[in-house]
Simulated scan of single mutants.
Amino acid sequence: MKFATPLREARLIKRYKRFLADIETPDGQVMTIHCPNTGSMRHCLEPGEPLWWSLSDNPKRKLPGTWEVACLRHGRPDSVAPDYALINTARPNALVAEALSENRIAPLSGYTSHRREARLGQRRLDFCLTAEGQQPCWVEVKNVTLLEQPDIGLGMFPDAVSQRATAHLHELMACVARGERAVLLFCVGHTGIRSVMPAADIDPVYARTLQEAYAAGVELFAYGVSLTREHMQLTIPLPVMLEKA
Rank of each mutant, 00 (worst) to 15 (best):
G65T: 10
R119Y: 00
F221S: 01
H190E: 09
W52N: 01
L129P: 10
V69F: 05
R178T: 07
R76W: 00
A4C: 01
L242Y: 04
I202L: 11
R115D: 14
C128G: 01
L100V: 11
A21V: 06
L242W: 01
T32I: 06
L172Y: 01
H168R: 08
M197T: 09
K2V: 11
G155N: 09
R181D: 12
E49D: 15
L95V: 06
L51G: 03
P204H: 08
E102C: 11
D201W: 05
R61T: 04
L120V: 14
E68K: 09
S109G: 12
Y206G: 05
A160D: 14
A94R: 15
I33H: 04
A21N: 07
V240R: 07
P77E: 10
Y214R: 15
L51D: 03
R123H: 12
P50N: 07
K142Y: 00
H231D: 14
W138V: 02
A4W: 00
P204A: 05
R164K: 13
G192L: 04
H190A: 05
V141L: 04
A207R: 10
V96E: 11
G65A: 06
W67H: 07
A160S: 14
A10E: 10
E212W: 00
L227T: 06
L51F: 03
P239F: 01
E219R: 11
G155F: 00
L55V: 10
F3N: 08
S79M: 06
A106G: 05
G153P: 05
D151A: 13
T89A: 10
D159S: 13
G155W: 05
A81W: 01
G192S: 07
C71F: 00
T38E: 13
P150E: 07
A106D: 15
G133Q: 08
T89E: 14
I105W: 02
D27S: 14
V80M: 11
D126V: 02
P64L: 08
A97T: 02
P204G: 09
T228P: 05
A106H: 08
R124V: 05
I87M: 15
C44K: 08
I87G: 04
N58K: 12
A182T: 04
K17E: 15
C44M: 13
C137N: 09
T38P: 15
A90Y: 06
T32Y: 00
D27H: 02
D203W: 01
Y84A: 03
L86C: 07
M197I: 01
L72F: 06
R73F: 07
I202K: 12
P239R: 05
N37I: 04
S101N: 15
R123N: 12
S109A: 15
N143R: 14
E46F: 00
A199K: 02
A90K: 12
F3H: 13
I13Y: 00
G153L: 09
V225F: 02
P64G: 00
N93G: 09
S54F: 00
G189A: 02
K2Y: 02
I87R: 06
A4T: 13
E98S: 11
K14P: 02
K17I: 01
L185R: 03
R164G: 01
Y111M: 03
F19I: 11
R116H: 02
